[in-house]
Design a protein around this nucleic acid. Structure first.
Length: 477
DNA sequence: GAATTCCCCTG
DNA sequence: CAGGTGATATTG
């Protein structure tokens, strides 16, 4: 527990690390706040402290309407405007189809206020923010794929090649073709980049708009080392039949994006420090989402050097730290949730067997991963596991069927879903790099082993990359 | 940028 | 409890 002094300093500093740890009771008004409440700090002689919202309510205080200390921790209301800004940025880039207005509506704010939020947090209006993102994606496609300019425009969600031209010109001063030529001048020929355009060139021009049977392929590069054998092994031990396939140098998986389903192949090309990603060109419009899914699955954006440096200070010896460490990801929270629930208290082997039984039982030989709806409608009689866990899975599926974006506080409200499950999901399916899974059995054992060896593990040193510490300990076991 | 809402303080 | 103040979030 915290001392009065600590509380005092924490609330004066509005230190977010203490948010949720205690509450400020203001005697003069009978209102209680979170330590980070933006309102002018009450005088010390007017306040008391409580360690839970329940306690505060019980003492007759009502929650502050500004900081909402009554709402569940981690809910959006709890996290304040910054979270709204982040979510806005995410929605603006991910859901390019929706208008700015509808995104504002989804966030529960007026378009005007969204504009203001974006302006204060990103110094740019929502519309412009989105266009920049589209242009950046288009630029990347021009430089790393064999896609035609027309395809690039579609891939980056421009309504036409003309639009792409226009925005590219106004933001970079160059036309799409010039961007692509820039690559040719400085690097190799474009046909060195995975040829698939060749087949297209031969086809009749009136077919270009129609869905073709061609493959689109692009190169997604990573920085630093990449321990593919390790990542590959991780996936191999958790493979879902039909939905996923693995070979010596590649992984393929059927992704479900919206109501579309597509097979994506990811082939490791160590010499290029990249993965060659390919999928059917009829899904060109999903290019952006495919890239982000693949980046998540393969953890392409990690910077292993920085992580290595951080992990060195935890007490691990350099030999124990893998410089090519990546976190094998899962691209939807739903799939991660299913795997986590079925993985509670059992071995990796047992867990994946259950996942496959579930998949087989509800989807047969389909390559599409099971849906929330299918689980929610089933009684799961064909599964052999504790009844409580089945119920948890069904309830989880119903929640996801109703609202895919349900917050973790809603997850936790389900009986059978606790901190371990949520954190496992955060580790493998969120952008958070700082998930320290110290409630995990293996991790506990590792921590104990280090303590016994006289060299206690200092996990705080690994922040904000404790997800990688977690994975390192798993690998060491 | 004004108007509104909300909170804290003092008398 | 009323009236005064300062500050933030939000809207039109």
């Amino acid at each position: 527990m915290l001392t009065i002094e600590q509380c005092q300093r924490a609330r004066m500093a509005r230190d977010p690390r203490f948010d949720g740890k205690f509450f400020v009771l203001v005697n003069t008004t009978g209102i209680f706040c979170r330590p980070i409440c933006k309102v002018r700090a009450p005088l010390e002689h007017n306040v008391d402290y409580a360690y839970s919202a329940i306690e505060a309510m019980h003492k007759g205080f009502r929650p502050c309407l500004r900081c909402r200390p009554d709402s569940a921790p981690q809910s959006f209301a709890w996290q304040g405007v910054e979270t709204t800004a982040k979510r806005a940025a995410k929605l603006l880039t991910e859901d390019v189809c929706s208008s700015v207005e509808s995104i504002a509506k989804r966030l529960g704010v007026s378009p005007r206020y969204l504009h203001k939020i974006m302006q204060t947090h990103f110094k740019i209006a929502p519309k412009q923010f989105r266009i920049f993102h589209q242009v950046l994606l288009a630029k990347r496609l021009l430089q790393s794929s064999s896609m035609s300019v027309e395809q690039v425009a579609q891939g980056a969600s421009f309504t036409s090649a003309r639009q792409l031209q226009h925005h590219m010109k106004t933001t970079t001063g160059l036309t799409p073709t010039q961007i692509r030529k820039g690559l040719n001048a400085t690097k190799h020929n474009s046909d060195k980049l995975i040829g698939s355009a060749s087949g297209k060139a031969n086809r009749k021009s009136n077919e270009t708009a129609a869905p073709s049977k061609d493959k689109i392929s692009l190169l997604l590069s990573y920085q630093g080392d990449y321990d593919w054998p390790l990542v590959r092994g991780f996936f191999e031990r958790r493979l879902i039949a039909n939905n996923e396939m693995i070979s010596d140098n590649s992984l393929s998986k059927t992704l479900s994006i919206g109501n579309q389903h597509l097979r994506v192949n990811m082939q490791h090309q160590p010499s290029k420090h990249a993965f060659n990603v390919s999928f059917d060109s009829q899904f060109v419009g999903l290019t952006g989402q495919i890239i982000s899914s693949v980046s998540k699955i393969l953890d392409l954006q990690a910077n292993p050097y920085v992580i290595f440096e951080a992990l060195k200070h935890t007490g691990l010896s350099p030999k124990q730290i893998n410089t090519g460490l990546r976190i094998p990801g899962i691209c939807t929270r739903f799939e991660a949730g299913v795997r986590a629930i079925l993985g509670q208290q059992v071995s990796v082997q047992a867990a994946i067997t259950q996942v496959n039984r579930l998949q087989q039982g509800l989807c047969g030989d389909s390559d599409r991963f099971v849906t929330p709806q299918l689980i929610a409608q089933s009684d799961l009689a064909f599964l052999k596991m504790p009844a409580a866990r089945k119920l948890a899975l069904i309830e989880f599926a119903s929640m996801m069927a109703e609202n895919e974006d349900a917050g973790f506080e809603q997850w936790l409200a389900i009986k059978g879903i606790g901190p371990w499950t949520v954190n496992y999901v955060r580790l493998r399916a969120s952008d958070d790099t700082d998930v320290w899974l110290n409630t995990d059995l293996i991790i506990k054992q590792q921590i104990a082993a280090f303590a016994q060896g006289g060299q206690a593990l200092n996990d705080a040193q690994a922040a904000p990359w404790r997800s990688y510490l977690t994975l390192t300990l798993w690998n060491l076991s």
